[in-house]
Nucleic acid binder design. Structure first.
Lengths: 267, 267
DNA sequence: CCGACCTGTGAAAATGGTGTGAACGCAGGC
DNA sequence: GCCTGCGTTCACACCATTTTCACAGGTCGG
């Protein structure tokens, strides 16, 4: 469904002109970028949770081959694209055999670089369809994409597909307030018709099933006039946390909502 | 080791000079080649069991884009590399976005073409070779890939080829819920058409044959709106659980439901 | 406190997914 | 050519899920 997830790309290059333009376009496309101007150790690359890196080996120097070899070997899930000026057939062949996924020659159009990164990422995601996404945990909950189910205390919530997709989206955006339109768009896959109450109904079903298996937690919170927020809270603590969170809180840019929360809680 | 598996490559091109040289080198490397001089329908490509195709869209003509789109859409597991003289950035970007894995410009060195095909096919074939060999057991079942058969209590289930492939896939993913599209993709080798019921029909055939030879086990479970899950369960458990739950029935203290249940049961 | 609007809730109605039997078409063997 | 086994497609019945609707309850701005 949401295979169009944003791409997290690392760029290792010192050609500021190229990088700047690329960054601009990538951000416009919703990608997340990390930049560096020298070799980044493998563990740090892992920490960045990148889908791919775009590297100009020239900025690394003599150890470039060694570095590329190590990256490709240690991070089999990372797409590696080399982008460099002047290269021989022999170098490209060597690089590709080493494990590099694509080799582009500068000067190159940023769109093409992006398209190639995209192609590399796509191919990799497809390759491990089985791996799927890892399970999420929140409060007593465990959301398992490989089972299309959520569990509390080892027991299944018996969610239907839509219920699961909705809960998965919410749990994945823990702490964030999601508007109904956004939720509908992401779960149903198309725009919400004006006046559609489906989201509300499914939220209710989720709350019922959550309550049934995990009564002492509050997971889904309503934000009046906005949408819903997923945030596991042990029952009873609710008031304190909201009061404590208040100073930080005023995130919503809508009307004068913040006031409401205070009043509501205070009463 | 794993990088030295033979690659099955399809070449669609009329540039006999290039193709001849490529074929020579590829064969020297132990690859298996299939050649064509025009568009090859998707089903035929499936039958060839290729890892990748190398296509010059010029030999296909006006329908090249349409053809490439169809190939990429219907055969997600097939690597697609385009190799053509003269192309614009816009064309390359369009192609890569379409699902093409790599785009090379002629004239190109055969070694580089091979290296790029190799890069495209590299990732998804990891660890596939070892999975083939071993027999699987689950419940009373024994799945034997070497015979393309499954047995229960020493008796063959008399599975056809497709039935076996399906059961093998399911048993190999024991406990995991597999979507129909995934199943079709992996067993049939290409994308499932919308509304295709083949998977359902074969599941029924499997269930019949399993029931016949191993009546006291439930192997294949339906997940509504999603797909199927293979998980051997002794049939007895199900009945017991239902019977045990029935007398106690009032499971949850929601509204006034229990009353209804009791009345209903009492009658 | 009122009216307007938003959200929660239960149940009916519509939709759509699954099980199943059977007909069809195709290829390989006799 | 005819038969047989296999895979595909179709139609229908049944039922789980989803959507819709009406109303109750809550929240907000005056």
């Amino acid at each position: 469904m949401n295979s169009q997830q944003t791409i997290r790309l690392g760029v290792i290059d010192t050609d500021s002109g190229f990088v700047t333009v690329l960054a601009k376009r990538a951000e416009a496309a919703g990608w997340q970028l990390r930049q560096a101007t020298g070799a980044v150790p493998a563990p740090e690359l892992v920490a960045m949770k990148l889908n791919a890196v775009l590297i100009d080996p020239a900025v690394i120097g003599d150890e470039a081959w060694e570095y590329l070899d190590r990256i490709c070997g240690e991070l089999p899930d990372l797409g590696v694209v080399v982008c460099t000026s002047r290269s021989t057939v022999a170098q490209r062949v060597r690089g590709l055999r080493l494990g590099i996924d694509d080799w582009i020659t500068k000067p190159c159009h940023p769109e093409e670089a992006m398209a190639r990164v995209e192609a590399v990422t796509r191919r990799r995601r497809r390759g491990r369809s089985e791996a799927e996404a890892g399970p999420l945990t929140a409060g007593e909950l465990e959301v398992r994409p490989d089972q299309f189910q959520a569990f509390a205390a080892g027991e299944s919530l018996d969610l239907t597909r839509r219920e699961f997709e909705l809960l998965h989206l919410l749990a994945d955006s823990e702490g964030q307030v999601l508007e109904r339109e956004t939720i509908y768009q992401r779960v149903w896959g198309y725009a919400m018709a004006h006046g559609d109450r489906s989201v509300d109904v499914f939220i209710r079903k989720l709350r019922q099933k959550l309550e049934k298996r995990s009564p002492s937690w509050a997971y889904i919170h309503t934000h009046f006039g906005v949408g819903y927020r997923f945030d596991p809270e042990p029952a009873g603590i609710v008031k304190e946390e909201i009061r404590a969170a208040d100073p930080n809180a005023p995130e919503f840019t809508d009307r004068s909502q913040q006031l409401h929360d205070e009043v509501t809680v205070g009463s």
